[in-house]
Nucleic acid binder design. Structure first.
Lengths: 211, 211
DNA sequence: GTCTATACTTCGATAGAC
DNA sequence: GTCTATCGAAGTATAGAC
């Protein structure tokens, strides 16, 4: 559902992703989605039936895609510290590939899931669930300090989502000379975050290493 | 601009805060703001002139309020580690007092500042600026490890914003039995985050303490 | 499957009486 | 300052020809 997309529904979903990310559910315009997808608006209703259905289909796909990658990491049998490193890297890569994902995630959290049906909510929930599972295992094995897995989830992924989703406003703030972002590339940000999380989550016995 | 509010404009701003937080700029309805504020819609236009002006006025106030608290912390002469602890605590308290703040912040980041004028952008920028200043000072004094101050800002505050702003959706996920939030109160979350940040940001020489 | 034209609704904003 | 009534624009969705 990413960039190429030859079939109508896929092109529509790709266009919808950009529109919903930039404007939010309420701000998104069906006409604009149709135009961006280069399909007639009637086609869009022919395939999906409503704006809401497009939105839910899109979110279900993207949450399921992200969760699948995290679950694959969880099922590895590597040390938890490595898995956490991978979670950060993998989500960063996923968001780089699906640039609309951070914005939509930020908006949906703020929205309280108002536009989501139970199935889509379930897909959304599988993301923190997968991360929490990894952290929980680490805590059980005493390689991660005693922390609530959901607290760890937010500590790990919220910075990533807000940093990557905040790219447009940072551009704006930089243009107005209101903030100094010298040398903070996305790549460096990811490495800084990995480092911070290694330090923040390591069990006391496992501390000292900073790689 | 918080809860009590006797004068019309203040009541309008308080109502607008709730409406914008719950629905976003595009989703917010002027009629609903007027109703919530128990003023006639015409009064609302009499005082503010447009939906956009209400939004900008609100955001300028709230960002300035948050930044003021952070600047006060920055100007203290306590150890940086303590200041960082205080930043987390203070922002958490500020968001508890202004429950609409996290949602609006999440939305505005996703929106890329589309509805903001330069002055409001400046108010927004003063929040990360204050935090970055504290971190930068710590790095200079070698009590904080070498990290980009803006990276540290996101690592510290994004979890707080997403966790607190995500309260509605967590309620939803909990009701559907899709996530386990046993024992993760906001208070515990704040303490976990403070702990994580102490571990993540301490300079190598200053490590070992976990209080 | 595809398109044009349009029905129906909602919403931001204002006119104008008091 | 306050209210009622309403305008005009914009938006989702659909009917119906091809």
């Amino acid at each position: 559902m990413a960039r190429p997309a030859k079939v109508s529904p896929d092109r529509i979903l790709a266009a919808a992703a950009a529109e919903f990310a930039a404007r939010g559910y309420a701000g998104a315009r069906v006409d604009r989605i149709a135009r961006r997808a280069r399909v007639n608006k009637a086609m869009l209703y022919y395939h999906f039936g409503s704006k809401q259905t497009i939105y839910r289909t899109l979110l279900r796909q993207v949450f399921a895609g992200a969760a699948a990658k995290l679950i694959a990491i969880a099922e590895t049998d590597r040390p938890t510290a490595d898995k956490i490193d991978q979670v950060i890297e993998t989500i960063a890569a996923f968001m780089a590939e699906h640039a609309f994902f951070p914005s939509i995630m930020l908006r949906e959290i703020a929205e309280g899931g108002a536009h989501l049906d139970p199935e889509t909510l379930k897909a959304l929930a599988s993301v923190p669930a997968a991360v929490a599972r990894i952290v929980h295992e680490g805590v059980r094995r005493k390689s991660v300090r005693a922390i609530h897995p959901v607290a760890a989830y937010f500590t790990m992924l919220a910075p990533l989502v807000m940093y990557l989703g905040g790219a447009p406003i940072r551009t704006e703030l930089t243009a107005q000379h209101l903030i100094d972002l010298t040398a903070l590339t996305p790549d460096r940000f990811v490495r800084e975050l990995q480092q911070s999380m290694r330090l923040a989550l390591a069990a006391p016995s496992a501390r000292r290493s900073s790689r």
